[in-house]
């Protein structure tokens, strides 16, 4: 393996660690309610609220 290959695999490993951190953060218990909130809030966006209208 040359240095380019090691660099390539190193970047892969680094990104995997970042990904694992995202999974851990997303699924931590304290984040449960907040993590699911957007799916409920998006249900009522068809009609903009008064405060959302252009100034």
């Amino acid at each position: 393996m040359d240095s380019a290959s090691i660099y390539y695999l190193g970047v892969t490993l680094f990104l995997f660690i970042v990904f694992a951190a995202i999974v851990a953060r997303t699924y931590r218990k304290a984040h449960q309610a907040k993590g699911e909130e957007p799916k409920f809030r998006m249900m009522d966006d068809d009609e903009p609220k008064k405060k959302d209208r252009p100034e």
Binding site: I22, V23, T26, K39, M42, M43
Partner: peptide
């Protein structure tokens, strides 16, 4: 899908994890 059914998606957190793993 949620707009058509009137029901939110099953899991937003699962969709987030799937998103990042897809990108990864």
């Amino acid at each position: 899908l949620p707009k058509a059914t009137g029901v939110p998606i099953y899991s937003h957190r699962m969709s987030v994890v799937a998103f990042w793993s897809l990108i990864f």
